[in-house]
Structure formats: structure tokens, C-alpha cells
Nucleic acid binder design. Sequence first.
DNA 1: AGAGCTATGACGAATATGCATAATATTGCG
DNA 2: CGCAATATTATGCATATTCGTCATAGCTCT
Lengths: 301, 301
Amino acid sequence: MNIKQLEVLRTLLATGSTVASAKAMGLSQSGVSRMLQQLESDLSITLFVRDKGRLIPTPEATVLGRDAQNVLLAIERMSGHAEDLRNGAAGPEIVRIGLPSSMWENFAPAMLIDYVRDFPGVRIETFFETTTAITKLVEERVIDLGFLRIEGETGPSIAIDTVASGESVCVVPENHPLAELPEINITHLRNVPLILIGRQRPNRMALDQAFKRAGVKQMVKIETHTNSSACSYVAHGLGVTIISSFYANLYRHLPVVHRPFVPRATQEFGLVRAAGVPLSIAAQALSGALKKQIQLSQREQ
Amino acid sequence: MNIKQLEVLRTLLATGSTVASAKAMGLSQSGVSRMLQQLESDLSITLFVRDKGRLIPTPEATVLGRDAQNVLLAIERMSGHAEDLRNGAAGPEIVRIGLPSSMWENFAPAMLIDYVRDFPGVRIETFFETTTAITKLVEERVIDLGFLRIEGETGPSIAIDTVASGESVCVVPENHPLAELPEINITHLRNVPLILIGRQRPNRMALDQAFKRAGVKQMVKIETHTNSSACSYVAHGLGVTIISSFYANLYRHLPVVHRPFVPRATQEFGLVRAAGVPLSIAAQALSGALKKQIQLSQREQ
DNA sequence: AGAGCTATGACGAATATGCATAATATTGCG
DNA sequence: CGCAATATTATGCATATTCGTCATAGCTCT
């Protein structure tokens, strides 16, 4: 496997033909054809079906095309850094932090208000991403810090500092009949429209299994991938959702209430950074600001 | 630059000598020496000082060594996925839609309220992602539909239906002095804390250039990647931001106002789907619901 | 002196690449 | 509809380039 093969894969997925790819890359069509073959051989995977003189990407090609793009982006970043080093450029210190999408509205600004005043020379870059993306961004050193829900094992390249916890709760509209209950269990949710997140992730699968064991069929109306959108759908009467109280506490301004969900489950949340990499003073301070804001957000209950 | 050169850099930084690296990599010492030279030549950067028959890494080597590691990690991930694919792993109709992160709060629920009632058997999956991610999700057939800002060229695998437009506006806190102006130009923003999005993207670079031509230095306090977080930062007094009126109209509930920004720029927004792939009835209806909600969101001005 | 290091000349094997072409499919025109 | 023109992918063949080793020189340290 070599870099040009990956570029060929990327370009083929974009253009759909070896002729167009060859033109775009300044190569011959036969070169492109060969490199595709070599890559398929190197990976022992068919990336394109040859159908009537056409190349049809396989599902594998789309998956690995994304990976190839990541490799090429990393190479571009390296080339960019080399360019910067050759040009001797340097700017203000930038501290980069990744947060769950659900935290942009009030949490992130509240966290940054004092910080920006205390560190006037520091530029902050915020990313609102999924747990998976945040983990990757930390691993790749794209960001200095991340806050995420701790799920299963992380590799040795990540250092985690547990800073918060929550329990599973059911979020319902405040005028919903289920809002009168002190706690909500699965049988309460029979025939209730559900808004669920984290499809195919371990915690979600555990929830699916619990429904199955209780003999209750889930009436899922909406799948989504952020706690924020799930709560908003609930607030608009589209159904009820099951999330961590940590996030539910961020949405107190919505006309919803949350009740402990049975079977009980707890979650842990942590601060992540690349293992073995010391944080700058500014990044440490941002870490501190984050921890402080977390305490505030969870304490006001 | 090739993959083995990057492995050489990584190994040299770990071992400190070409002899040890050659042994670790199963190469000859002279091969390692040459590959280091080639990499230095390719990058036009001295990575190691040759001092008394020893290789001393330069600061550049440590910076780029990190990048090299990122590239190699990305390659390993790709290989891992290929391995998974080689080893090999129905339900209700699911309609999947990708929206900008900025649209989860009120737009998405409002869009879905009537839809969910009209299509009770359909399950919806919502993704809130960046323009780039949405384009990819559409191309890869992960999602049926996407809504995004149209930027530059998209490939032939994407069909776009332009459904909205906007102009660049400056969003400021409602009690800010700039809120009194009928329009805001670059000189107004001298020494004003800025919250900017889309770093390194074409439109952002155009804005950076406009500041440069006007001889005004940007006082960027926060870089972020979603319109929503930028507006929230503005509402909390952390600075002002420049975004499309399309998005600003989604945040009318915040204590901010927006004014036309000069130099003027306009934006177009469209519905995207995979070209040549017919939408299901349910997906078409969701497309219709999206268009209708867009009209509502932009009309109430 | 001996051991260990880096760099380089010379050389051969392996790889990359383009030209030309075959086979097949699609499109456009009469 | 039939046929020529065009477009696509794959492959034989030849050539250029790259990759990598062996052998060795020069330097440093013990």
C-alpha cells in the first residue's frame, strides 16, 4: 500500500472512472487501473465491481475510502506543518477542546466567559463532536483536551480523568402522564413513541436487550445521535427519550422533566488528553474551567 | 514522501540510530540512512543534525515525527478496517437525514412534528454534522438526504436542489454598540473580539483576505466550527461573529441582533442526495417537510 | 586497536509508468 | 434498426525510476 494508491481510491470514488481520475491526477488511465488493482491485491479486498465496462464501488470501498481520506488528510497536515516550519511562521497559542455537541448552547459559553478574560492572549478552538470523534481528535493530537462519556476501553494513547457521573433517566414532556411517576421502567414505555440515541453502540445495545428481556417492543420513532436533539424532540412532543442525567441536567430550560429509569444504569464522564503529553498552562487552565463548569451544571438540582 | 520514510522517522526518533532502526525494521543501515535523506530532501527540512557520527533530532523532527505518527496511525486503522471487512459481519423503513449541527434545537423538531404523524411506520434517523460530513454521508449512501450550504463544486455523485439563500451578517449582542448600526463593515470590527468559524475553509479564507486588504487585524478570541456555538458565544458576550443570515434567523430567540456585513457576500443552501438514486416516498415527503420548514424559518423576518 | 556510528559508490532487483491495443459497452446519426 | 463513433477497463511490452544491499570510507569513543 502506498500513498498514490490511496489518492487513486479517493479520486475514483469521487469521479467514478479511471479515465477521469487519470486526468485529474495527471497520470495515464492504465496507471490508475493498475494502482487500483495493486491496492485491491494489497488489501485482499474487491473495491470496485467491474460491470459493463464500468467501475461500481463496493460497500467496502466506501468504508475504506473514508479511511484513505483520513490518511491523506494526515499527510496534508504534515506537509502543511513542514511548510510552516520552512517559512518560520508562528502565531498566538491556540488551545483546542472537543466537547459533545450537546454542550454548545449554554455550557461552553459559560465555561469560556471567565477563561477568555483570564487568558487574553490565548485563542480557543472548540469542536463539538461525538465521543468517537473526540477520542480520535485527541489521539491524533488535533485537540489538546476532550470531554466525553467514558465507554468501555480506551487505548493506552489516551489519559482519562473521571470528573462527572450520571444515571439513566427517562426524559418526558412536563405535561406527559409519565411525568407523574417517581421512576419509569420499561413496561411504562410499552406503546410509547421513543426517541433513541446511540444506535449500535454498546450502551444502546444494552438498552435494546433490556427491552427484549422485558418482552416490550420498542416503538422507536426517531433515531438520533445527540442528547441535545433527543431532548429537543421530547420538548416538542415527539416522544420520550432515555439518556444520562448528566445531559438531562443541561436541558432544564426545556419544558421536560426527567425521572430515574429502571433498570438502573450509571455513566461516567471524563476529561481526556493524549497520554504522556503535558498540557500547556493555558490548556491546564481550560481543563480547570471545564471541571468547574461541570460542577456548576450538575449541582443546581 | 512515502510510508516507509515515515516509519523510518518514527523509528529513528525512538531508537536514536540508523543501525538500531535498521535492525528493528529489518532493513540495512544504509537503506535507513538513505530514506532519512530522501525524507529530508522531500520536505526540504533538516530533521537530524549529524554530530560526531551521531544523529541528533532537530525540533522540526519532533514536530513532524508527531505528524508522521498520525499518518501511520491512520494507515493502521485503515488496515484494521480492511481486516474486519475480509472477516465479514431488515426492519422498518428508516429515512436518514443529515442536517447542520446548528439546526437541532427548534428547526429539526418543528420539521418532524407533522411528518411523524403522517408517516407512523417510518423511523427517522437524524445526523447533525458538518457540510463535509453530510456530503460524504450522502455519497456513501449512509443517509438519504442532506441539507447543507453549497460550497464550490460537488462531484457528479451528488444531486443538489437549491432551496434557500442568505447573506453574510454580523451577529452582535443586542446591547452592543454595533447593534445601533444599519450595517457593519470591517473597520467597525477593529479591536473587537471575534468568534469565527470555518477556519481554513474557502469562505473563511475569503473573509480573512478581506480583513487583510482592509488593513484590519482580526482579534480572534474563539475559533469554532458551528454557527450555533458561535451565536451562543455572542449571546454570552464573548464577542461578535460573522455568519449567514440563514443561520442567524434560526437564533432569533437569543439576545442578539444581526446586521448586514460589508463586504457583501451571499450563500446558497441546498438539499442533497445521491445522484441517480430515487428517493422513497417517505424520503421525498421528508424532503418536502424540510423545504416547508425552511420557508417558515426564513419568512418570519 | 577495536567497536560503533553515518554516509556513499556501485550494482542489481523490483517497481512504477506510459504507449499501444484488445474487448466490451454506450451513444448518436442516418 | 444498424452501424460508426466514442468511451470504458484491462493488459502486453518496454523503459525509466526507485529501492535496497554489499562493501567501504571516514569519524568518534573507549
